[in-house]
Design a binder for these strands. Structure first.
Lengths: 205, 205
DNA sequence: ACCTGAACACCGTTCAAGT
DNA sequence: ACCTGAACACCGTTCAAGT
């Protein structure tokens, strides 16, 4: 029994489910075929190969991300809010981040925020190359952070290594610092601090 | 002919060569065995499995990274120089970055810079929790950037997507901005700008 | 135009057996 | 203590053959 006309869309849907459940490493052409009740080779006819399947999935997921609405009245606040929202949206889709990494499609993750950022940076009075630089600096910072955080989340064990360095000379003079470094970092706060610093240095005084 | 006593060290050496040549995805237990002239299963006796092999490799590569010597006289300059050096050292070892990502061992990449950063931040007059926050903010920013750049380097095609957005309304009023965004970003410069902004906002005025 | 099974060249890991 | 081959359960992809 052949089943009713396999479509590209149907394949993407099933692939999205597999990725959501087991990550991109859990997306195999064979499991996908099993899920769809077809031969593996049928999938190749529709999507080419695994790489372009993942590319298509990334494309679709980015399109789902929805436009970002800035909040606040001061230009710096509005830009920081765009950064914060972008980070939140991306972190809410760890499979997207993972797929983007697998295929090296970082730029795609930038798109939903770029429109909003261009607008805000323009409103803050930046023009031309300086405006472009500001947009990119914010984008890079957000995506860099998101990649880093995703990486930390996947740490196999709560890394025990950081503390043992802190018998080191300097830290002995400053036990509060040693203790603070022994505690796990607060990425939320670090993100806020760093982003605020960046935005304030980018905007015209 | 059995060959002369396979050692853990010898296995790590051969694995490092494979990773250097073909990346971590090119490191397979079977190729490794072939390279070493042993049965695949011998390797398992010495290193456990592929995951702990990669972990050991990361550990070793981080240990090779060498201490970081700050340059400059102003505290801000010295901290920025540590950040710059860390970034350069990490970027010079793309396989390290890739392995760290595969195994989620980000914290390991922080280690070589942490000593130097603690010292500099302390010299700049920060103490306790504030000093720890400064150290971590710099570390996060560097590693986030390195991950992002590595990601961009692996882009399958020079991403064509960014420009097509720039028929958008705002950019039409500012053709210089549209042109600047159509050109590829200059990550070197963005890194410098962002890091400088961060450091200056962290240090006491 | 679409789907199929067989086949190829890979993987990591386990296990019982050897010395 | 160390090494072995056979076997298991996976991969992605190609290709000739079907309808």
């Amino acid at each position: 029994m052949p089943r009713t006309s396999l479509t590209r869309e149907e394949i993407l849907d099933a692939a999205a489910v597999l990725v959501k459940q087991h990550g991109p490493a859990g997306l195999s052409m064979r499991k996908l075929a099993a899920e769809l009740g077809t031969a593996v080779t049928s999938i190749y006819w529709h999507v080419g190969n695994r790489e372009s399947l993942v590319d298509a999935l990334v494309e679709r997921t980015v399109r789902e991300l929805g436009a970002i609405v800035p909040r606040g009245s001061a230009p710096a606040d509005r830009i920081v809010s765009v950064a914060r929202t972008l980070r939140r949206e991306l972190r809410a889709r760890p499979h997207l981040i993972a797929m983007v990494h697998e295929r090296g499609l970082t730029e795609r993750m930038f798109l939903p925020a770029q429109q909003a950022l261009v607008h805000e940076v323009h409103a803050a009075g930046l023009r031309g190359a300086r405006a472009a630089e500001a947009v990119r600096a914010v984008q890079f910072q957000v995506v860099g952070y998101v990649l880093l955080e995703r990486n930390r989340d996947r740490a196999p064990v709560q890394s025990p290594g950081e503390s043992d360095l802190w018998t080191a000379p300097v830290a002995e003079h400053d036990p509060a610092l040693a203790r603070a470094l022994a505690r796990p970092a607060d990425p939320e706060r670090l993100f806020a601090v760093s982003m605020r610093a960046l935005v304030e240095s980018l905007l015209p005084a």
